[in-house]
Design a protein around this nucleic acid. Structure first.
Lengths: 223, 223
DNA sequence: GTGCCAATTGTACTTTGGTACAAGGGTGGT
DNA sequence: ACCACCCTTGTACCAAAGTACAATTGGCAC
């Protein structure tokens, strides 16, 4: 009996997704969450789910922060991103961040079902019209956010946990206490993180990683 | 002949503001900019302007980043924020960040003229209906962004420049090179900054300061 | 089993980061 | 002139950060 979490702050959306999930899986146990906190709490209690349908925008979480946090803390749980937007950049970034799929809310129900089955089978899904749109290679030699994302994905789960705590400005000593490991170990992780991310100080790592969370600039009309 | 910079990416808005400026000042020299880069470049060449009308949202700059950068680099130039939004929180935050006024685009022309005169005379302007709405005191003992803003404002101009470079993840050595001062001096500034901001490491300072730039969450419909 | 890798820890070392104290030059106000 | 404040720099010292090398444990795959 597969455990499937549906996380969206809009009850109507959860209802629609529930139908799709019930059509795609055999006797699924569906767990609904209205905000990210509930998702994290739920995952902590059950360890891992068989699938997480995660809305990009929920109370208290802007862009990819939720995705990043879930992927960091619970890398074993496959995540499919649900979103009202379908900007190709968003799709690419979500997948680069480890999402197993990206389903716009405008997707027909039949296709949602197919998408969920695809992901359940180990595949990754993205909207049809984007399937072939290869990510445009960056002509400039400068490091881009996408490059950085790829590097973040090479971090091990524990290293991501360390990175997350780095992002709060904690000292190695504090991180060690939080994760209940030796400060030496933290240093080892940090050192490895810096190499993988190709930066020379924790502060730079924090600055770079900080961008990822809030770069889901859903263009607002005009300010 | 007062030099006044009008920075807004929308030509129509610049035109309207030009009229207001011409009504409020005697023979003003009006300099128009369509994006923040032009503003910074202009200020660097002329050193300081008598007034800067700055749109919150311009190409390449989301929320208060532009305001922060101008205030940091050119603290002598008074800034009046122009915005389509008029959320009281935005108004308070803009003023807390050192803006001398906040003018919603919906403001009647006559009032804009009055507001500009007010600021030119050393006063600060905010929309009428907000004049009396005191910032709600925080009941919780926790440190808030507003607290932090107040502390950032106690930094000296040079210290803000250092903080800004800290925010890019640079080493003290690099900051020293950029500002053409000794590393010892940078350390002195950093040390003072940490005390004023009440944090214990540069990374924490960067994390805290990082929030200010992007917290202008102009609520998007639904993602 | 063998091999690979994540995770852990230790020792020892170098480099940054940060504090404390002292001091000279500049600006602006009283 | 005097004071306050900013900016600058130096010396000296301590703490934190980061590197390098080596070693053990445990899980997972072939």
């Amino acid at each position: 009996m597969p455990q499937i979490i549906i996380a969206d702050d809009h009850p109507m959306v959860r209802g629609a997704l529930t139908l799709a999930v019930e059509a795609a899986f055999d006797q699924p146990e569906i767990l609904e969450c209205a905000h990210l906190g509930a998702v994290m709490q739920l995952l902590e209690s059950i360890g891992a789910a068989d699938l997480l349908l995660l809305d990009l925008r929920m109370p208290g979480v802007d862009g990819f922060e939720g995705l990043v946090r879930v992927r960091s803390q619970f890398p074993a749980t496959p995540v499919v991103v649900i979103s009202a937007l379908e900007d190709p950049r968003l799709v690419r970034e979500a997948l680069a961040l480890g999402a197993m799929g990206f389903i716009p809310k405008s997707t027909p129900r039949a296709e949602i079902v197919a998408a969920l089955s695809l992901v359940a089978g180990g595949g990754t899904y993205r909207p049809d019209d984007l399937a072939m749109s290869a990510p445009p290679p960056d002509p400039k030699g400068q490091a881009t956010d996408d490059d950085f994302l790829q590097r973040v994905l090479t971090l091990t789960p524990q290293q991501r946990r360390v990175l997350q705590l780095l992002g709060t400005g904690k000292l190695n000593k504090e991180i060690a206490y939080d994760l209940d490991i030796a400060e030496t170990t933290v240093k080892a992780h940090v050192s490895s993180i810096l190499h993988k991310l190709r930066v020379y100080s924790r502060t730079q790592a924090v600055v770079m990683a900080g961008r990822l969370h809030l770069d889901s600039f859903a263009d607002v009309a005009e300010g």
